[in-house]
Design a protein around this nucleic acid. Structure first.
Length: 366
DNA sequence: AACTCGTGGGG
DNA sequence: TCCCCAAGAGT
């Protein structure tokens, strides 16, 4: 790898970061010392996986107020943990973080990078980031920002992740020279604010040294990733209400929205075929919306059905007192129906005779 | 080694 | 509207 020496090439990043660095709630004042609260670094890094800084900040602040130490988090029950993560997405991160806190509370912090990487939810990037930012270990942390910055700086053709091992070897001496915490955060800050997918080279401290800029190829380096087409589906999202209770699915242990409570769903085609009077269905529904996930697009038709009495719910379904609903962790889709139920003036039209529809849903759900 | 896992912001 | 991407990890 005929790359210029990293300590020299990256030297401008240190004074640049000292000037422009954002004041983030998990960021230490003294970047030359070990971080005063490694737990804060761990929380921030789990929250920041595939999630932008601006989104994380309010969650981070609430999280540390609610769970100030690994011990406090280790003792929290799963619904409480998921409630604090509600809306942030990728919910298994919350379970990984709690499991990591259990380990730290019981055995203390690992003493090396391999130990960090064994904590649940910490892969190659996050283990190195916590090692560098919390403990000042010279561990190269390569995230999407770092790969983009270094691919352009060094004019790496193709997917830079293929060169991860070379890049770590190349970067390590620069971490020693400029400080692991400082340089790690400076590279990512540059990628997030200047060397973004659409770069602002005029503001870049590395512009003079950047090989991609000299070649006028920043627009094509790194190449865009390939993405699979999202799967399409259409569902009814069903709020059944009886005797002041609402019917919810208890949290699943795996799959989409695992760990969260969910409204029962019925595949749209299924309900249409089973309802004796399909023409009644739209009259009981609110206008729907499209729920977007990374690999799915879901046409959601919200449905509110009032029953006179509860029925024996199927396995995994629970009748929840309506007053308790706000304490349960829900995903964005299910929060939206919860909000519809609680909003006056949003009541859908009543069907002339919804009994057939209710029987159909009860058959499908219980 | 593809595939899965949420949600929000920006062009 | 659509596509890309975001301080990725686990399977």
């Amino acid at each position: 790898m005929p790359w210029p020496a990293a300590p020299d090439l990256l030297a401008p990043l240190a004074p640049w970061f000292g000037r422009v660095r954002r004041d983030l709630p998990w960021r230490a004042t003294d970047l030359d010392a070990p971080h005063p609260d490694p737990y804060a670094v761990l929380v921030s890094e789990l929250m920041l996986q595939q999630t932008q800084v601006a989104t994380v900040v309010p969650y981070f602040n609430r999280w540390l107020a609610r769970f100030p130490t690994p011990q406090a988090l280790a003792e929290a029950d799963e619904d409480t943990v998921h409630k604090a993560w509600e809306g942030l997405g990728y919910y298994r991160r919350a379970r990984f973080l709690k499991a990591a806190a259990v380990s730290v509370a019981a055995e203390g912090w690992p003493g090396d990078l391999e130990g960090l990487a064994q904590l649940p939810g910490l892969g190659p990037y996050t283990a190195a980031a916590v090692g560098a930012i919390a403990f000042q270990w010279p561990a190269p942390a390569l995230d999407g920002n770092a790969f983009r910055v270094l691919a352009r700086l060094l004019l790496i053709e193709g997917d830079p992740k293929i060169r991860a091992a070379d890049l770590r070897t190349w970067l390590a001496p620069a971490l020693e020279a400029h400080g692991p915490s400082r340089l790690t955060q400076a590279i990512m800050e540059l990628g997030a604010t200047v060397c973004a997918p659409t770069p602002a080279c005029g503001a870049c401290p590395l512009a003079d040294a950047c090989a991609a800029r000299q070649a006028e190829r920043t627009g094509e380096i790194p190449p865009a990733g390939k993405r699979a087409k999202p799967k399409e589906s259409a569902i009814w999202l069903v709020a059944m209400e009886a005797e002041g209770y609402l019917l919810l699915h208890a949290p699943a242990t795996s799959g989409l929205l695992a760990g969260l409570w969910r409204w029962p769903t019925i595949e749209a085609s299924e309900l249409a075929s089973q309802t004796p009077a399909p023409g009644l269905v739209p009259m009981l529904a609110w206008p729907g919306w499209t729920q977007v996930y990374t690999h799915r697009r879901e046409a959601v038709s919200p449905l509110h059905l009032r029953l006179g009495t509860r029925f024996q719910a199927a396995e995994g379904l629970r009748w929840i007192p309506a007053a308790d609903l706000s304490a349960l962790p829900l995903g964005q889709r299910d929060q939206r129906l919860r909000d519809l139920l609680a909003t006056p003036g949003q009541t859908p039209l009543e069907a002339p005779d919804p009994a057939a529809l209710i029987r159909a849903c009860a058959t499908l759900l219980g």
